[in-house]
């Protein structure tokens, strides 16, 4: 075959095939264009040209198969490996009926304080106390009991809350317990009954009082101040106001006890260690997650159907607690209906 005939034949081929021919014969063939590739192939030694001609002939006889064709169906697909990490068969999920069993009002029983409540009150005689327990499990009882003891010891009590609205609620509550002449309230511009043994205020007001006392302009009975109750003290981590709680705790008079009431937080031990490190007495931490009224969770579908939220009836603690299969199914349906059209 002469060079001209070969050149013509090569020019008629797709460039992909030309690269196939040039493999291992021309270095860096992949960087060349079609014309240069043909020229280079023609410039090869006569022996190599003969090789090219034979492979060209064989290529032209069988039609080229593109490499990305799907695999022929007869190749057996790999069987899926057996699943090894199947967890132990879980306990059967509870039914909706079981979930709603036992709703009702318990009979009136004489109130008996829990052990931790008693423990908190006892410790307050000598130590500062942090209570980090779930909402609604009886922090207020501890506060009331501690106040009662302080009043008996003729001490002044300051109760602070982060919101004025809560101050008003507490004013009503304490007035009902101790009588309205025993409770006073201080706001930025008003003082109601400031001579009463129990004073309610926002934490900012207390901080201001402590600053005034520190600079010698005392107009409060801080020397008889026996107990400071800081409600909602998880506000310590509030972005704007948290510093006020820190200032209050730092400047609280040494002779008065601190009682910090807080919702469940992750590191109450750290807060307790801090308070112990800066105050004259150590700070006792009472921390648990048991609710006095057990809590259960349910899922309500927009269709009005109720299902248990978790597989178990009571809410378990820990990571990776499984949702109830019925809830999963209902929520998947809900998402399909509400998100479906937008996705498509």
């Amino acid at each position: 075959m002469t060079n001209d005939v070969l050149a013509k034949q090569l020019a008629g081929l797709p460039v992909k095939l030309l690269h196939h021919l040039a493999r291992k014969r021309v270095p860096r063939h992949f960087r060349m264009g079609k014309n240069r590739l043909i020229q280079t192939l023609l410039a090869l030694s006569p022996d190599q040209q003969a090789e090219i001609e034979t492979s060209l002939a064989s290529l032209l006889q069988e039609p080229a198969r593109s490499p990305d064709l799907p695999k022929p169906p007869d190749t057996p697909s790999r069987p899926s490996p057996p699943r090894h990490n199947v967890p132990a068969e879980p306990a059967p999920a509870i039914s909706t009926k079981e979930l709603f069993e036992g709703i009702g009002v318990p009979p009136q029983r004489p109130f008996k304080p829990d052990d931790w409540q008693q423990e908190a009150i006892n410790h307050l005689a000598t130590n500062d106390v942090i209570l980090s327990v779930p909402t609604g499990s009886g922090k207020t009882y501890v506060a009331l009991e501690a106040m009662r003891r302080a009043i008996e010891a003729e001490q002044t009590i300051i109760y602070t809350s982060p919101l004025k609205a809560l101050s008003n609620t507490k004013l009503t509550e304490f007035s009902q317990t101790f009588g309205s002449d025993q409770v006073g309230i201080l706001t930025g511009d008003r003082r109601d009954n400031p001579q009463a043994p129990i004073l309610i205020m926002t934490t900012e007001i207390l901080r201001n009082l402590l600053y005034d006392a520190a600079s010698g302009e005392i107009d409060m009975r801080l020397d008889t101040l026996g107990l400071i109750i800081l409600d909602e003290s998880q506000f310590l981590a509030d972005r704007e106001r948290g510093v006020v709680w820190e200032e209050t705790i730092i400047f609280a008079p040494a002779q008065s006890r601190l009682l910090l009431l807080s919702a469940s937080i992750g590191n109450p031990d750290e807060v307790a260690a801090w308070i112990s490190s800066i105050r004259s007495t150590s700070c006792h931490l009472i921390h648990h997650r048991n609710r006095s009224v057990p809590l259960r969770a349910a899922y309500l579908d927009p269709s009005g159907k109720l299902a248990p939220f978790f597989r178990t009836r009571d809410i378990a603690h820990g990571k990776g607690v499984a949702l109830h299969p019925e809830t999963k199914r209902l929520f998947a349906n809900y998402e399909d209906r509400t998100l479906g059209p937008r996705k498509r």
């Binding site: 036992g102 709703i103 009702g104 009002v105 318990p106 009136q108 029983r109 109130f111 779930p134 909402t135 609604g136 499990s137 009886g138 998880q234 919702a263 469940s264 937080i265 992750g266 609710r291 006095s292 009224v293 057990p294 809590l295 259960r296 969770a297 349910a298 899922y299 309500l300 579908d301 927009p302 109720l306 939220f309 809410i315 929520f331 809900y334 509400t338």
Partner: peptide, 28 residues
């Protein structure tokens, strides 16, 4: 987690309920 527990904590009244409930219902 703090906020969700704060919400859920309002469920169940001491002395008035045997159990409290959190009902989750979907919204956008």
């Amino acid at each position: 987690v703090n906020e969700i527990q704060q919400l859920a904590g309002r469920g169940g009244r001491r002395g008035k309920d045997y159990v409290g409930f959190v009902v989750v219902t979907p919204s956008p």
